[in-house]
């Protein structure tokens, strides 16, 4: 168990937490967009995040007890 393994472990925990929280949503969208509509420019990042929140206004999602 050296410092590098620990750092690598922590980094992957960090990446996992970020993925669960949704930090990578824009990257996911870009990856999808590139393969599905390569000829259309993707939504700019700021607009993407706004749209992502605003869609919940129209289609609310439940949270359980």
């Amino acid at each position: 168990m050296n410092a590098i393994t620990i750092r690598r472990g922590l980094a992957s925990v960090g990446r996992y937490v970020q993925a669960v929280m949704g930090d990578n949503a824009y990257e996911v969208y870009l990856a999808h967009h590139r393969s599905a509509h390569p000829d259309v420019p993707p939504m700019p990042e700021k607009e993407f995040w706004r749209e992502r929140d605003d869609v919940q206004d129209r289609e609310p999602q439940g949270r359980c007890c």
Binding site: Y16, V28, Y29, E51
Partner: peptide, 17 residues
């Protein structure tokens, strides 16, 4: 898939979600 609400998600991440 539309990259927004329909996204194939890593199973462990989806477990967390």
């Amino acid at each position: 898939a539309n990259g927004k609400d329909y996204v194939p998600t890593d199973r462990r991440v989806l477990f967390g979600h």
